[in-house]
Design a protein around this nucleic acid. Structure first.
Lengths: 195, 195, 195, 195
DNA sequence: CATGAATGAGTTTTCATTCAT
DNA sequence: GATGAATGAAAACTCATTCAT
């Protein structure tokens, strides 16, 4: 669904918030700052959103949906059905690394969302659903290789946990980028080998 | 006159903050709330700490030091020198799982600290040091097994990333506790096997 | 839509401060008191001014500009060019006495501004400029009478110092008003005679 | 009355306040700052003084008494009775210029006291008494020269006003020190000539 | 839809003052 | 006389939210 640029002030505001979150946590970002970043009048934010919290919720939905649809587009296609499963998993990892784990701007935002989720049940539920989906996609790929549903599920869980840990460390630790990628792909090949 | 009562008001306040952080993020916790939780007058917080931020910084130091010393006590002992290295690593994982990864109250706090670190260079630096130490301890244990410093370092990095991802998921996902522990110990044995 | 009402809230607030300063020094006047005197919500003061200090600075500018323009209007006119110089000086003193030195409300405010200037370089600079202008106007009037620039400048300096001392005493000492005016006009005639 | 150094904590505190007032107005100087400057515990200030305001009042008394006694010592002596009156007045001006008008630290403090006096009747009364005494001393010197009590009083009033205006300008305007002294002594000789 | 003035609750912080030891 | 912990009132300032235009 290509958004006609500027046609939707709502999206414009959510993207402004995304930019703001690169510099400050949500709680320290005022509605006026978001408005300024979105280049709209601050009063207008209350026309499109019923409260500051509502902006946050819609923003989180927006981010999660964005990545959910990215994954869906790439891996739910029919054409993938005939592909070699190991190759598919490899592609999945490549995609995940490049588009998610190594996207620093996204990782920053996710650390923020984690923290919000800890204290905010509705946000927590959203995250749970998103992670569940992610694990399910991976789990379904692993199943054919070992024919053990539980093991596949546990392996997916561990893998996603590892990836999120790596996303965290990509922001918190100032690790050399080459080293970081080596660790990521080492792990990936070990997972594949193990199966 | 030994200052027996009142001498530990500082700790009392930091522990009150720890309790507060189980319910609310730091930014939404007012100084008066911390004071109430610590059962002291709110003005006193500014007697012991120069600002709200100072409370946070001292709290983070307190938490990190607490765990650092726990690890130091357990694994820097001479007696460990003669122990079987595989057994030592196993013990290290058991310790880490029980005292850190599975401590939900601690994990909650750490998600909060991660978020703060993203936007706060001094806090980030503290985290970096703590994680580095943790990785170094593990790395030093792995080295004798594979004689490859770089591999040991990367394995430690991946392991700690995985553990932090698991800590995150212990809070964010409502996973069955048994399943969670299984994933944790599966991973541990795979690591050990690999070496 | 011409902003007729509300457009002058800024002036309204500065004039409220002027009234407040008749009763209390600036530091003892709270923002809420100024707001009450201006009959506006206290939050609004932070909408029009970025801080309490900013109110003060803008107030001082307002006061100084007010008097500067009063003097400019009266003495920078072309028509003055042909007038008898002694008469002009006489008029200048009359104007100064009536509109400045004998304006008790203004003198009160100026004593406050002096004190602030002592510790506040930016305010000090504003005062310096204002006094310099005042001395220059007078100096330019005296010059034709004695053809000595330095003497004119020194006489102006002394005169303005005297007038400010008198303004101070009009507030601090409870001198009989008639006596006070006599001293003022005695001095004026002596200055004129001397030249 | 030589004060045995350190024997009188009260004086020690008042002199600390004097030092503080070189940097900050009284209202912005905290009791703890005064205590630190006096090198005494801040709780002690409330032993020697009943409130912060009491420190201020006693300080003002202390300053005024100090200068009153300086003048008294110098000009109330019998030996002055036989001296040439013009010479005496000259000495009086010299003394005043050197010890009061040109004492920048004192002038700073006096600007502060003026401002306090504006809003504080008791302080105002103290200042009135001090200025009255000063004018009386001068007036009594001038009387023999013109045999007009009223004129002498008015001349004294004007002279002291001028001197205080000059003290003000010595702090507020950054006038060249030589020029400043010239203005001061020019004025002095004109006064003397006039009589 | 858009604007920006207005509101008022809530936050951190300061600090004179008290008081037990 | 000293000390320094403790108290609580009051201050400046922020900001989400409302609303008239």
């Amino acid at each position: 669904m290509p958004k006609k640029n500027g046609s939707d002030k709502r999206i414009q505001i959510l993207e402004a918030l995304n930019r703001c979150l690169q510099n400050k946590p949500f709680d320290k970002t005022s509605i006026k700052e978001i408005a300024r970043a979105a280049d709209v009048n601050h009063g207008l934010l209350h026309y499109y959103f019923k409260s500051k919290e509502d902006i946050l919720i819609q923003y989180i939905d927006y981010v999660i949906d964005h990545y959910r649809s990215m994954v869906k587009e790439r891996f739910n296609d029919k054409e993938l059905e005939n592909i070699d499963i190991k190759k598919l998993i490899e592609e999945f990892f490549m995609f995940t690394h490049d588009r998610i784990t190594l996207d620093r701007s996204l990782s920053k935002v996710f650390i923020e969302i984690w923290e919000i989720a800890v204290y905010h049940p509705a946000v927590k539920a959203k995250l749970q659903r998103a992670y569940q989906e992610w694990m399910d996609v991976l789990s379904n790929m692993l199943k054919p290789l070992n024919n053990d549903i539980d093991l596949s599920r546990r392996t997916s869980f561990a893998t996603v946990a590892f990836l999120e840990g790596m996303a965290l460390f990509s922001i918190i630790l100032d690790t050399d980028s080459k080293e970081f990628k080596t660790i990521l792909s080492d792990f990936q090949s070990k997972i594949i080998d193990m199966l």
